[in-house]
Nucleic acid binder design. Structure first.
Lengths: 139, 139
DNA sequence: CTAAACTTTAACCTTAAGGTTAAGGTCAAG
DNA sequence: CTTGACCTTAACCTTAAGGTTAAAGTTTAG
C-alpha cells in the first residue's frame, strides 16, 4: 500500500513519451501531477499514471486531446453514458468520411498512373497535361 | 490573341479562392504573377491561370503544396516521367496505409460502442474502464 | 471629386501535438 | 564536493495552408 511517487522523467520513460509531452498535457489541463515536492519537482502517483494510461489509449483510438478532455469532463460530472456514445458515433462518422475520400483519391491516382508511360519526359506526360488543362478533371 | 491581364482579386474570384491564398502561393514560390503594374499591383496572365489550374487540381488530388513544387521542378527540368510516377506510387502507398489505419480504428470504436449501455453513468461505462485499465487494449 | 472597393506590405494568428532552447536550480553517485 | 543527470520556467519553433489585421496607396463608379 506504499504510495509510490514518480518524477516526470521516470513517468516519461515508463510510458515511452517525453517530459515535454507530460508538461504539455499539464498545460492544456489534461493531466496534473498529484503535487510538487519541496524542490518544485512534479510528483506523479499511481492514479496519475492510470489517468495517463487512459489518455494514451484514447489518443491512440483516434481521439484528439481536446476530445479526451471532454471525456474526462463527462466522467467527472457524472454525465450519462449517452454523451460518450455520441462522441464515439461522431468519430465513426468522420472516419467513414475520411475513408471514402481516400478511396476516391486512390481511384483518381491509379487512373492517372495508367495513362502515363515511363519513358516520356515529365513535361509531355498525360498526367501533367491532364492536370494542367482540364479544370474539372479532378474533383 | 489579346493577352488578357487579371488582378489578384479577379483571379481569386474566378477560382473560388482568396487573394491571401494567391499571395501565399507566391511567397512559397509556387505561383508568381507574370509582372507588376505601375502601381505595384500583381498582374496575372493566361499562362499563370493555367499554372493555377494545375496547382488546384493537383492539390485536390491529395498532393501537398511542397509536392506540387517538386512536380513543377521535374517538369521544368525535363526530368523523366518516372519521377512523376514514383511520386504517385508513394502517394498511393501512404493513402493505403491511412485507410488501413482508419479501418482498424473503426473496428475498435464499434467494439467499444457495443460493450456500452446508454443508461449507465459515464464513470461506470465499460468503455471508460477498458480504456483506463488495460494498457494494451488499444494499439 | 469623393467614397467605395481594391491592392500593397509586414507581421501576427490558427490547429494539433508537441519539440527546442536558454538560463538556471536540484539531486545522486563517486 | 563536484560532476553529471535531472528538473524548473518562459518563450519560441515546427507542419500545412492559409486567415487576420493594420496602415497605407490605387482605382473606379457615381
Amino acid at each position: 500500500m506504499s504510495t509510490t511517487h514518480y518524477t516526470i522523467g521516470t513517468v516519461a520513460k515508463r510510458y515511452g513519451i517525453t517530459t515535454v509531452t507530460l508538461r504539455h498535457y499539464q498545460k492544456i489541463g489534461l493531466l496534473h501531477p498529484s503535487f510538487r515536492g519541496e524542490s518544485g519537482y512534479r510528483v506523479y502517483k499511481e492514479e496519475d499514471l492510470s489517468r495517463l494510461h487512459f489518455i494514451l489509449n484514447t489518443k491512440n483510438a483516434g481521439f484528439t486531446l481536446e476530445e479526451i478532455k471532454a471525456l474526462f469532463f463527462m466522467i467527472d460530472n457524472g454525465e450519462p453514458n449517452k454523451a460518450v456514445k455520441n462522441l464515439i458515433h461522431e468519430k465513426l462518422k468522420s472516419i467513414q468520411e475520411k475513408i471514402l475520400h481516400l478511396q476516391k483519391l486512390t481511384i483518381l491516382l491509379e487512373d492517372l498512373d495508367n495513362v502515363c508511360h515511363k519513358q516520356m519526359a515529365a513535361r509531355d506526360c498525360p498526367i501533367i497535361k491532364r492536370l494542367r488543362v482540364n479544370p474539372s478533371a479532378i474533383s
